[in-house]
């Protein structure tokens, strides 16, 4: 007990002030690549067209290096609408429809002291019935279609559907997109998205940025 307390004092404040302050870290390849030098690039997911990179398709593989380099900017978040009524408090339900595991862990990282999601009025919930937003990760798999539909149906309005990661947005390298069965309110790009990108997306969707 005492040991924990002293540790906490010694550690000081580690929590980021993002989004009001600057983000402390950003994984380079979680940002959108930018053209750096000329040359042909064989993108495995056809995300590159005329020097522009489709953020929903890019799987952060780095095959376009060195022609493209990470932009080191939080990518543009595509979203359909802003839900201001959830700006004070929002409960998130994490839904895994077929991930490699990385996206889930990046969303769960929001719980860690560096991000401290509770300071933003965010918390995870155990059932979609209590959720304001559903964070869908991974490609659409056959077995999860029915649970996904049930989860979205059982949420009360207003609700926000987040598609987190390239797999959910576009199907990525190996599957189908979530958009085949539901509309995507917010698209969080990356493979996997950096936690700061996820925070930025959530805050934008609630109209706080």
């Amino acid at each position: 007990m005492k040991a924990w307390f002293l540790r906490s004092l010694k550690k000081g404040i580690v929590t980021s002030s993002f989004p009001s302050g600057k983000n402390e870290a950003l994984s380079p390849w979680a940002t959108l690549p930018m053209r750096d030098m000329s040359g042909e690039v064989d993108c495995p997911v056809d995300a590159i067209q005329d020097d522009r990179v489709d953020s929903g398709k890019c799987i952060s593989c780095g095959i376009c290096f060195p022609q493209f380099k990470p932009s080191m900017q939080i990518p543009q978040i595509n979203m359909v609408r802003v839900e201001k009524s959830l700006s004070k408090s929002m409960k998130l339900y994490l839904f895994d429809s077929g991930t490699c595991g990385a996206c889930n862990l990046e969303i769960m990282a929001l719980n860690s002291p560096q991000y401290d999601m509770n300071r933003l009025g965010l918390s995870f919930t155990n059932t979609p019935r209590q959720a304001d937003a559903i964070m869908i990760t991974g490609v659409l798999t056959e077995g999860m279609i029915a649970p996904l539909k049930a989860a979205i149906d059982s949420m009360a309005s207003p609700k926000i559907v987040f598609a987190v990661g390239a797999c959910a947005i576009s199907g990525g390298l190996m599957g189908k997109s979530i958009s085949e069965i539901t509309g995507l309110d917010v698209q969080v790009p990356g493979c996997p998205p950096d936690p700061f990108v996820i925070v930025a997306a959530i805050e934008k969707a609630r109209g706080r940025i």
């Binding site: 994984s27 990282a109 002291p113």
Partner: peptide, 25 residues
């Protein structure tokens, strides 16, 4: 929370050094 804090620190080091938090690419 203390352990998650360490893990996130480690992931940030990995991200900065290797360009990707999960060694992709």
């Amino acid at each position: 929370m203390n352990i998650y804090l360490l893990r996130e620190e480690l992931l940030r080091i990995i991200g900065k050094t290797f360009g990707h938090r999960y060694f992709f690419g």
